[in-house]
């Protein structure tokens, strides 16, 4: 899929993926009850796309999608977190040729692999990089941004862990070969 230059399919996947990321971020984020932490379904989607189209697509969907979402909704991208979205997409994408979702089965082993990858990726992203950038760029108080990162990170891990896994599982099911199908 990714050579030195992107295939048309990857490019389109990035474009449409980013658009969907924006829409999900705008409309489908469920409040958890914990003050200002929401379940961002857009990250579950990002995970799916990363697994389907690989790291480059994952990274760029995160980057473009998040930046556009911020621009359109808040008038200005929050760069520190935009960058993290890109990294999360990238790391999860690295697992794509291990998981090979298109082969139509997404068993326990793959589910575990996927979740290990996503947890690690997001831990690094939300617990370390995001707050650090916040401090470097905006000189925000350390304890504040680390707590923010922690809460957001955990929320996103759970989101991707539950919804993301379900999405991949559902997608894999649709891949099942119709040759195996018998009318009853």
């Amino acid at each position: 899929m990714q050579g030195e230059k992107l295939s048309i399919k990857t490019i389109v996947a990035i474009g449409i993926g980013a658009a969907v990321f924006v829409i999900l971020g705008r409309f489908v984020s469920l409040p958890t009850g914990v003050p200002n932490t929401t379940i961002e379904t857009s990250y579950a989607f990002l995970a799916l796309m990363a697994v389907l189209f690989g790291p480059v697509a994952g990274a760029l969907i995160g980057l473009i999608g998040h930046a556009l979402k911020d621009l359109i909704m808040y008038g200005s991208p929050w760069w520190s977190w935009v960058i993290v979205s890109a990294l999360v997409g990238l790391f999860i994408g690295l697992s794509s040729n291990k998981i090979k979702i298109d082969e139509g089965e997404f068993g326990v082993k793959k589910i575990v692999l996927f979740n290990i990858v996503q947890v690690v990726a997001q831990a690094v992203g939300w617990f370390l990089i995001a707050p650090t950038l916040d401090i470097l760029i905006y000189a925000e108080p350390a304890n504040k941004v680390y707590l923010q990162g922690l809460v957001a990170g955990i929320a996103n891990m759970i989101t991707v862990g539950v919804i993301g896994t379900l999405l991949l599982f559902g997608y894999a099911k649709t891949r099942s070969k119709s040759g195996s199908l018998e009318k009853e």
Binding site: I11, I16, A19, L60, L68
Partner: peptide, 22 residues
């Protein structure tokens, strides 16, 4: 790169369509 630039264009082009789908 124009490929990446174009994917941004695609995103902008299809956001309204996808919102309508949604």
């Amino acid at each position: 790169s124009y490929r990446i630039a174009f994917s941004v264009a695609l995103a902008l082009r299809y956001i309204p369509d996808i919102q309508r789908d949604f």
